[in-house]
Amino acid sequence: MKKIVERIGIPTLAVTAMLVIVLITAAIQGQSLQTLFSDMLNRAGMNGLLVLAMVPAIKSGTGPNFALPIGIEGGLFALVCCMQMDLGGWKLMICSIALAIVLCTLMGYAYGKLMNCVKGAEMTIATYTGFSIVAFFNILWLVLPFSNRKMGWMLGTGLRETIQLDSFEAGGLISNLLAFQVGKITVPTGMLLLLGICCVLVSYFFKTKAGLAIYAGGVNPQFALAAGLNVDRGRILANILSTVLAGIGIIVYSQGYGYAQLYNGPMMMSFPAVAAVLIGGATAAKANCMNVVLGVFIFQGLMTAAMPVANQLFAGTDLSDIMRQIIQNGVILYALTQVKKGGDR
């Protein structure tokens, strides 16, 4: 029994148990489980890539990418630039993703360099780098000369807090691609497919020469060094990949949500992503795509399902958000207690 618990991991078990309880409660309350499942699938699809961004970072030994906002801001910037050119529909999606890949590669490179300078305290520095980037982009949103009326304030200069993607005919574009219905459950095929493809690509990447080198450098830098590898370069490559995934991830998220959230929206986005991959069974030093898929469905599923259930139980208390905070940060804290040795210092 104890062995099974250890193997699956306490966070996974505990959060899964909660999900089951919430779903049972929902059934008792007479909520439409089918609508609930639709929402759960949709939320999971929206967050999938952001969670997947954790895998390369963890594998390379820099730990969970708490600096996810870097990639997110890169993605948003790409999106906003393409909006400025008044692209719409698929053109907007594809161009912004392409631009996001370019931007995030540059930003990820710089970020990877930074991570190599602060070995041993990556997580702390990453968090503040992420926060700083968000604050920096807040200034950019305000001062850069974006002029498309669809995304400016009614009065004054600067971009809006949230930009509607529908005004660019891009809301839910990927989600609705090939979407089909099973009973009342809507399956956002496009989003899930994209997540699936990216997972497969990441898995394959870690079977290539470069991917294996990153993996070895992450689990045992000494071993990698003795095998003639450049560990630092591997870490940079992994963080570029992570940042790019975050950049694409936020575009997928935005189209699913229907809005691009600027300003402080991305500030706290790394924490649920970190928590999800941990809930999927990853640790601060070990992760794979299975953890991502499992984690994002359990965690986002729980969050989606808990909202209507809690609302019906205790109207107006926002209990599900409180639960999110406690679970999300509790899981991260638990993972931190499992980090071995720790610096040193």
Partner: peptide, 25 residues
């Protein structure tokens, strides 16, 4: 969480915030 105290102290603030919200709300 020896060696990771600073990130732990940040997260424990968020965690505490959840608990605090639970109490006051």
């Amino acid at each position: 969480t020896r060696g990771q105290e600073m990130i732990a102290s940040l997260i424990v603030g968020y965690f505490g915030n959840g608990v605090y919200m639970f109490i006051v709300l």
